[in-house]
Design a protein around this nucleic acid. Sequence first.
DNA 1: TGAGTAGTTGCAGGA
DNA 2: CTCCTGCAACTACTC
Length: 652
Amino acid sequence: MPSPRVIYWFRTDLRLHDSPALQAALDLEPECLFPVWCWDPHYVYRARVGVNRWQFLIDCQNDVSKSITKINPNSKLFVVREAPQTVLPKLWKKWRITHIVFEKDTDAYARDRDEAVRELARKAGVEVIVRMGRTLYDPDELVRENGGKPTMSITQVQNAGKKLTIPRPIPAPTSLPDPGDTDLSGIEPEPPAANPDLNAAHRNNPDTTYHALAGPAGTFAVPTLDELGLPPATTPHRGGEQTALTALAAILTDKTYTATFEKPKTAPTAFSPQSTTLLSPHLHFGSLSAREFYWRVQDILSAFKHSKPSRPPTSLTGQLLFRDMYFGAQAALGHPFSQSISNPSCRFIPWHLPSTLDPTTARPTTGRYTIDHPAAETWFKRWKAGLTGYPFIDALMRQLRTEGWIHHLGRHAVACFLTRGGAYVAWERGAEVFEEWLLDHETACNAGNWQWVACAAFSGAQYYRVYSPVAFGRKWDAEGVFVRRYVPELARFDRRFVYEPWRAPVADQKRWGCRVLGDGRGGAGGRVKEGEGEYLVYPKPMFDFGERREVCVRGLKSAFAAGLYGADESVVDGSWRGRFDDAGEGPTEGSEGLPLGMAEGEEGDVDVDWEGMSLVVHDGGEGEEDVAPKGVKHQREKSQSSLDSHVKRSKK
DNA sequence: TGAGTAGTTGCAGGA
DNA sequence: CTCCTGCAACTACTC
């Protein structure tokens, strides 16, 4: 029996600590170990990945490569620039590989990819070894213990979890075998088709990462943003296992914070520092193991005697259980989990801007949607641009775009506003924007949380509980420090008006340097001349929130009464229209409609553009300055005194 | 079984 | 600061 020659295939497990799959590779006692990353065109062109998430991925790859080299100077992360489905068989042959080892991934695309690789390995006589390390539980086992059903509530996860164990973390290896000869001569590269490129809008230059299989210098180097044709990242949040472990250690040093953490009590307006751990991007890329996080928190809880520790679901460990819940839901439902139509657990609600489905696959891979309602299209564009005219919403959207992370409750506020609490736009439109901009984008968690907030699935049923774009932010940050930081146009506004600047008298607006005018087309940082003065411009609210709230609640009420789900025949074939009357918001033109995904109408593109997209609001040589007024504390403060009925509520 | 209760994260007003 | 109520009223879970 010859000694094993092993490819360890890194994917979303960019770490050396607590990697059961890496351990399994080492347990083979291989003659040589090739740590490989396949630069997958699916991620480069077909997933929505903004520049900040690319930066985070590259950080993680460089860090894990450095860590490998530290243990064995002859080794590193070998980035091979081709699809795994085509390049791995060539590597097996060339490098005389006997085994391929990787971490299990239950994402819908990953399952398809890995199944293809397994089949190719079988044909090539290469043994495949897979271990789960991405979540607390193996999602398939969690589903099995949940009666084979998708995990749709935290109670189900907790009950199913009782029959399973969360493995203790395993230490990082202290030695790694040499890789073998990594010669690629004779291998025919197969560069991918770049079209469609869902990330084309981000690129200044064409992507060149596929020009050579082992990179421009033939060194298997991690590609750069420059090679991707992308401008520099704007996020301050950085990736890498070392960064993650340092951040985790710093958090756990504060035992009271760790043991008494209650998510709903953390402020979405805190930004320096933020009120939560910001470890989610590391969980996504695997630069931190969820199990390592879980057990290190759990051990602190066990020893904590000062006061009552928090418990799931609000505690830190509870946050990890929610992650497993979404993974379990996706593991059971597959591709339909991240879409509305054909998703059996997603309540059907006739949102505006529905996805255009690919007729052959019934999946929304077209990247397009139907503009059934022109105003909704404008609302969606303004929401994405951070120009809704509601400062709290705009601050969050600008923070999301520039930094790649916003607090969970901030995500709720903007998601509610786009869907059931304002614009009545399909949650998939919002999920696509989050996919593009979030560092921690995780298909399962993103699709799941959007369905939750939109009241389409999970615990989301109390649709009459609507986040106010004015009151919610003010509850946490009465001074508006957060809004002033991310919407600097309003930096000088009085605290009474910073969440609703359109109410400020014109004389005050002028005194504070910003006029509330128009619909945002001038963009953030636009200016207007009036008389002697020149002022910044911030848009008026794009709709009356009180009115929209009423319309949305009525729409949800009729959708709940109809009781339809995404996989119902009438939803898939379009005959659902007959079940709604015009009282509900939505495309309700009667029973004549085409199937929803193929509805007629002008088509929109997900890469919306709005002139206000330039978010950097520095102007005329003043340079960057901290826009938060000096001396303002940014703790949680409450104001109940100045609520002069923020937006009128109309009863139609 | 069916009634009662709880549900990580609403708002406004009040004690 | 916490807790309560009315608003209108959904679903899952428990016993």
